[in-house]
């Protein structure tokens, strides 16, 4: 009780009671102790030679990587185009699958909260929790290496993300508009297209562009495992220690990401 009598009818106030202060002090003490212990342990098993050597090695690689090998660009146009396509098609497929999942998962639109909603939520959690690189590894084993595996990996990884954001938007709609459309005698599909869809359209467009932007970044690394795109060139350049090519690829990826971020920011700005 932070309010306490001071005598003479006056009241004192502190933010916390003495007991709360003690608990917090002990909590901080334990936290600091754990940190110091961890620090000791980590430094005990670190080979400090490598750490001290790191700046020199980094400088060395940087020196080898500059200037970038600009002529290698001829080999990059196709992979970067592939990367872009993987991201775009993957996002489109993900959106097509995410929309029904979102409607099944939202509390106010699901046909059954007991049977259907948990299944939809499971789809969302399972697709979201596995990284697209791992999806790609799995899919390469199933459908073979190439762009298609990359597209599907991106699509699966994005379903959960899009469906989760979309079902949250569905749950936040103004229910009175749905009531109004229901009251006209409209059927369930009409109630959805008139009462719900217009309300979630801005959120949907925002989610789509946002995910597309993320997927461009994700698809640049898919090639590392053989799922198409610029990552393949990156991994082969790294393996052959062709540092000038690596630096060029990193510049290209950086540019692609910056451009996609700019486009998505513009589109999202236009929607809101």
């Amino acid at each position: 009780m932070p309010v306490f009598p001071l005598g003479n009818d006056r009241l004192g106030w502190t933010r916390r009671t003495p007991a709360e202060r003690l608990v917090r002090w002990v909590g901080w003490l334990i936290g600091v102790a754990v940190f110091v212990w961890c620090w000791n342990r980590i430094s005990g098993v670190t080979t400090w030679f490598f750490v001290w050597d790191a700046p020199r090695i980094a400088q060395d690689i940087l020196a080898r990587a500059t200037p970038p090998r600009w002529s290698y660009m001829d080999h990059l146009w196709v992979p970067i185009w592939d990367t872009l396509n993987i991201a775009t098609l993957g996002t489109l497929i993900a959106l097509c699958l995410a929309v029904p999942v979102a409607f099944l998962a939202a509390r106010n639109t699901t046909p059954s909260r007991v049977f259907v909603r948990p299944v939809a939520l499971l789809v969302i959690v399972s697709t979201r929790s596995i990284n697209s690189l791992i999806w790609a590894l799995l899919l390469i084993a199933i459908i073979g290496p190439g762009v298609f595996a990359g597209i599907i990996a991106i699509a699966i990884r994005s379903i959960g993300f899009c469906a989760k954001l979309l079902y949250e938007a569905i749950e936040e709609i103004d229910q009175s508009q749905v009531e109004a459309i229901t009251a006209t005698g409209a059927g369930p599909l009409q109630v959805t297209t008139y009462g719900i869809v217009p309300q979630i359209l801005p959120a949907f467009a925002g989610i789509a562009v946002f995910r597309w932007d993320i997927n461009i970044r994700e698809s640049t690394v898919l090639g590392l495992v053989g799922a198409g795109g610029i990552g393949l060139q990156l991994s082969s350049s790294l393996n052959t220690l062709a540092w000038p090519q690596v630096s060029l690829i990193l510049i290209v990826i950086l540019l692609a990401v910056v451009i996609s971020e700019w486009v998505s920011a513009k589109i999202r700005g236009a929607i809101v």
């Binding site: 508009q177 109004a180 006209t184 409209a186 059927g187 599909l189 009409q190 008139y194 309300q199 801005p202």
Partner: peptide
Amino acid sequence: ALIERLTVMENVLSGRLGYVGFWRSF
């Protein structure tokens, strides 16, 4: 309880949803 993002006309016509089929209304 109007559909905020639709036009006035669309809002008025939505009163006919009970009479009009899904595709026509869509």
